[in-house]
């Protein structure tokens, strides 16, 4: 007799639990205001990334096309993947002494894991993270970038 009642209570509880489940999906069906989808390519204009977003490593340049990198190579040493290559050149400074400045700061985006060690360990805060995240290219060689802009020079007093 006990199992007889259990049979019916099983049916009752089963149907009840199913109805509760259906009420959840049903409720969401009738509340389109809760849709969370982002229409990505369309919302590009007002797509605001967080300020700390790690899109790519960039070298910070000011309005006069000047940066703070002196080519010390600490970022290159700190990078776990070898995605940074610093190529310095020796020039003669204004005071006549030989001085090391940066020729090319090469950054292999394809090898970067965005660990942030280069930015954190840069002694002169020359590096930062950019907001750009659309990195897809058809040619892998385009992922290799030169971070110091052409014609840029070092800000005085940073060395």
């Amino acid at each position: 007799m006990n199992s007889f009642f259990k049979y019916f209570s099983d049916i009752f509880h089963g149907v009840k639990s199913l109805l509760i489940g259906m009420s959840v999906t049903g409720r969401y069906f009738f509340s389109p205001g809760q849709i969370v989808t982002q229409q990505y390519p369309e919302n590009r204009k007002n797509l605001q990334m967080f300020e700390r977003f790690k899109g790519e490593v960039i070298m910070l340049h000011d309005g006069n096309n000047q940066h703070r990198c002196n080519g010390c190579g600490i970022c290159e040493n700190n990078c776990p993947n070898g995605s940074i290559e610093v190529i310095p050149v020796k020039v003669t400074g204004e005071d006549g002494k030989p001085k090391r400045i940066i020729d090319k700061h090469i950054y292999h985006l394809g090898m970067c894991t965005f660990c942030g060690l280069c930015v954190k360990n840069c002694p002169s805060n020359a590096l930062g993270f950019g907001q750009e995240f659309e990195h897809a290219v058809f040619d892998r060689s385009k992922l290799t970038k030169v971070l110091n802009q052409p014609g840029s020079s070092i800000i005085k007093g940073v060395e």
Binding site: T25, G26, Y28, F29, P32, Q34, I35, V36, T37, Q39
Partner: peptide
């Protein structure tokens, strides 16, 4: 469409 609305999608 129906399943999308149930799942908070469009």
């Amino acid at each position: 469409k129906v399943c999308a609305f149930m799942q908070n999608r469009v």
